[in-house]
């Protein structure tokens, strides 16, 4: 960005203007500054990591008890009869076990990042600096998605590392090249990234922090509960429920795929589809509407 001082003033000015145009890279940098200079963002990200890693550690500890119980043949038979899962099976899911809480926090953060711009009036500064609007929104989405991915995959990886010594006490430890282990860790990040795109798009459409948080959390976490309670008996509801964003996310991090369930990639198509449709809608609407 440094301009040569040896040039003639007019030339230098022209050169400076050329250098000073809005580019996507610059908008990304601007959005990065915005994300990192609001203290609550940083606090929320750190909280998410702590919570996700903490849950993984706790679950690992709890699983060792389950393993101990199941080592006793009588208990094992009794538990199997009750349909309790196998400790070794559970242990594979430990790294990303805090995903629900991760989704809750990162979806909220995604909504807050965009809706607070409308709440405070910052959006007018943003859109005056980047008047084509789309690149400002895309840059924010990209940064939030990248942060979410790193938070999710990073937490899962730390969760894995911390869980191993705990699991080892019960012979439950597993290596990263175990079946589905690495994909589970990576996809914990992918789910968070897609969920944050979903939530930020909702926030962009609603332009209100409270409304955006309630709506995105409602669709991601409450809707599947409602479906489970009220739609359990109806076949088509159960069938349609597989295509909820939350179901897609669940399948993405699943370490064992039941018969008839979507696999990890199909799950990512479901969640990704939701995120993409809402992203497109939010870009279109923002382009058309007054700020």
């Amino acid at each position: 960005m440094a301009t040569s001082t040896s040039q003639a003033p007019a030339q230098q000015r022209a050169r400076q203007e050329q250098l000073s145009g809005v580019t996507f890279g610059r908008v990304l940098k601007s959005e990065w500054i915005k994300v990192t200079t609001v203290p609550s963002t940083v606090i929320l990200i750190v909280t998410t990591i702590v919570v996700m890693v903490g849950i993984a550690a706790l679950l690992a500890w709890q699983t060792t008890f389950l393993f101990d119980a199941q080592s006793n043949p009588d208990m094992a038979a009794q538990m199997q009869a009750q349909g309790a899962p196998d400790a070794a099976e559970i242990s594979r899911d430990i790294p990303g076990s805090g995903l629900i809480f991760g989704q809750l926090l990162m979806a909220s953060l995604a909504v807050v990042l965009i809706a607070s711009e409308w709440g405070t009036g910052m959006i007018r500064s943003t859109m005056v600096a980047v008047p084509n609007r789309t690149s400002a929104l895309l840059a924010k989405q990209l940064i939030m998605a990248a942060v979410s991915f790193l938070v999710g995959a990073g937490s899962a990886l730390i969760g894995y590392v911390i869980a191993q010594p705990i699991l080892d006490t019960a012979e439950l430890g597993f290596s990263l090249d175990a079946d589905g282990a690495l994909l589970h860790i990576i996809n914990t990040g992918s789910v968070l990234a897609l969920v944050s795109v979903f939530a930020m798009s909702v926030g962009t459409l609603i332009r209100n922090t409270a409304g955006g948080v309630v709506t995105s959390i409602g669709v991601l976490l409450v809707l599947p509960i409602l479906v489970a309670i009220f739609g359990g008996g109806t076949e088509w509801v159960a069938d349609a429920a597989r295509f909820l964003p939350s179901s897609g996310g669940e399948q993405m991090v699943a370490t064992t795929i039941q018969d008839g369930d979507l696999n990890q990639w199909q799950g990512s198509l479901v969640l990704g589809g939701w995120a993409l449709v809402l992203l497109a809608a939010s870009l279109l609407v923002t382009k058309k509407r007054d700020i």
Partner: peptide
């Protein structure tokens, strides 16, 4: 037209960054 939790310096820095 400013985020209330950001400092004036960082607000201007973020706006300036869009144009280098």
């Amino acid at each position: 037209a400013v985020h209330t939790k950001r400092s004036a310096y960082n607000h201007l820095r973020a706006m300036a960054a869009t144009h280098g």
